[in-house]
Write a protein that binds this DNA or RNA. Structure first.
Lengths: 337, 337
DNA sequence: GTGAAAGCGCTAACAT
DNA sequence: ATGTTAGCGCTTTCAC
């Protein structure tokens, strides 16, 4: 069933059918009605490949994710997919390994699939103009941004939270509760990552308060997952673990750390307070509920798509959005007496 | 940059370039070398839309998911994406609402995107041959199957666990620990769902043991999410909650229920045991770790893709795989004394 | 308001 | 081994 068949059956020309298909105004009501009826009756759906070929563009938007099973990303992915589909586009998703280059992958996708745009979920903070030259379509950095000034604002779009500031607030919250010996649970794979940024917030809060920033307070793992955090915290505790509170750079890592603390005989929050950044749903259901700064996941996904569709459709320029976080008071932090 | 340009620059015909592009043997080494060089130099990538149009097929495989943020699905999605990309195809993902018809949606995708095949993640159990007539490409049901005999085995493919049997085992485990008054936490939106199937396993175990199967033991929620389970369990407890153990049809729901129990002053497992089916990572990190039957998520995704690619590439027939589950002993079940 | 016809970039007969 | 050519299904001038 092609446009030709519809034209034949409707008794009009191919052109007229095409006009109806594309909601063009220059068709008589009579023709339009007839064509629509025939389309309906025959369950006809236009061939996208042919449309794309003529328009030299596809209707696809690429989503490149570093780790689709990261629970923090799943709500964003859902929002992104909804937005893309609602906008009449198709979402093509690819995930990349932790040491793959998302820009190279994005560039390949762009050309192979003739993408209209890209959303990068999780990525490096130090793109250079040369890196960006690989990309010829609009793109939005979601949940991260260019914090090291290697790019100017006009060169890219982003939707993110104020990572350093939020981490700073989290640590301030612990300090306000009387904690001085505060450990930081971070990942150390890359010094231009979200982990590094949040770590900077931790450092700032600690230095500002004049607290010692000793090495054993910084607990490193090489992955963002629960298990890695659990193992790293277990090692830290075996090594003494001389701290009264932990700032974890993600909820997931905090959950892993909490099990390690528990197994080590330290109750949360009685013996050790825990705070994090992310605000995934499950962390509000554990015991004790995690105190954490929530990112507006759904909103981040939605805004990323909005910005991208504006750039594609209205040729609007690059935009940046920094969304607010909200402290969700759980039960994992308590005042140090 | 099109195939025409490459041909012109290389000094050969379009056909020869096309042959090189498709790794055909009937090209002289000399021509091949030259063409490849020109392609390389010009950073040429063939236009997929044009290829798809000619072949009347795309390289896309559709993934239809009911709820991408369901943590149980995320590992499957990751495995599916890896398999599809590794196989040289493109994954196009769409999620659907809880009361949308996945087959209608799949059929639309199939035709619009000219899909080569489909993977359905989560879906109804009562497809009829008429329903399937909507689909003209191979498809695999992942994590569910046709358990009501409305289809013959040759009509579809599936990768799943033995849901009813696994639920039965879970409840048997509670019974072996001395529990008689066992509540079932299920969803009641649809009587042809995975929830229903697991509920049947519960019923079988209870009846076999000769235990009363009273209404207040069946706790219903209309969603699969944590919050819904939390609310349903809270209601059940407010109504008396006369049971010593809970069988939850999913880890996620068990986690919601555990918070409700806790807030109601019932310790798990001292006052109430909890068991579930799924085996998501986080449920092993909560306190107490959830005792649950683990589904092999990664394997399920991988096998689904394998079966689908075999059907697409080798035209092999429909296959069915029932993968084994493994009991992960947490600390949420204890013997009733 | 409508239709004829020229491509979009590619593949696959069919020649040579 | 290589080239010519006819489409794949659609959009879009351009003419009427």
């Amino acid at each position: 069933m092609t446009i030709k068949d519809i034209a034949r059956i409707s008794g009009v020309s191919i052109t007229t059918v095409s006009r109806v298909l594309n909601n063009r105004p220059d068709v008589s009501d009579e023709s339009r009605r007839k064509v629509l009826e025939v389309i309906e009756n025959n369950n006809y759906i236009p061939n996208n490949s042919a449309r794309d070929l003529v328009k030299t563009k596809s209707d696809a938007i690429g989503l490149v994710v570093r780790g689709v099973s990261n629970p923090f990303y799943t709500d964003i992915i859902r929002a992104v997919e909804s937005g893309i589909t609602a906008g009449g586009y198709t979402m093509v998703m690819q995930q990349i390994g932790s040491n793959e280059d998302e820009l190279k992958r994005a560039a390949m996708m762009e050309r192979e699939k003739r993408l209209r745009g890209l959303i990068l979920l999780g990525g490096r903070f130090d793109y250079t103009p040369t890196d960006l030259a690989l990309l010829n379509v609009p793109f939005v950095c979601c949940s991260f941004s260019n914090h090291y000034g290697t790019l100017t604002e006009k060169e890219y779009s982003s939707v993110s939270i104020a990572d350093k500031e939020t981490a700073y607030q989290a640590v301030r919250h612990l300090i306000a509760n009387g904690h001085r010996r505060i450990a930081a649970l971070i990942t150390c794979t890359d010094d231009r990552s979200i982990s590094q940024l949040r770590y900077e917030g931790y450092v700032q809060a600690m230095e500002e308060a004049g607290f010692p920033l000793e090495d054993p307070l910084v607990i490193c793992t090489d992955t963002y997952n629960i298990q890695g955090a659990y193992q790293a915290m277990t090692r830290a505790l075996d090594d003494g673990g001389n701290f009264t509170a932990v700032f974890a750079i993600s909820d997931n890592m905090a959950i892993g750390a909490m099990r390690a603390l528990r197994e080590n005989g330290r109750a949360v929050p009685e013996d050790c307070s825990v705070i994090a950044v992310d605000g995934i749903e499950v962390s509000d259901y554990i015991d004790p509920p995690l105190t954490t700064f929530c990112q507006p996941m759904e909103e981040m996904g939605r805004h990323s798509v909005e910005i991208l569709l504006d750039m594609i459709g209205k040729h609007s320029g690059n935009r940046h959005e920094t969304l607010p976080t909200v402290l969700r008071q759980g039960g994992s932090v308590r005042p140090l007496v």
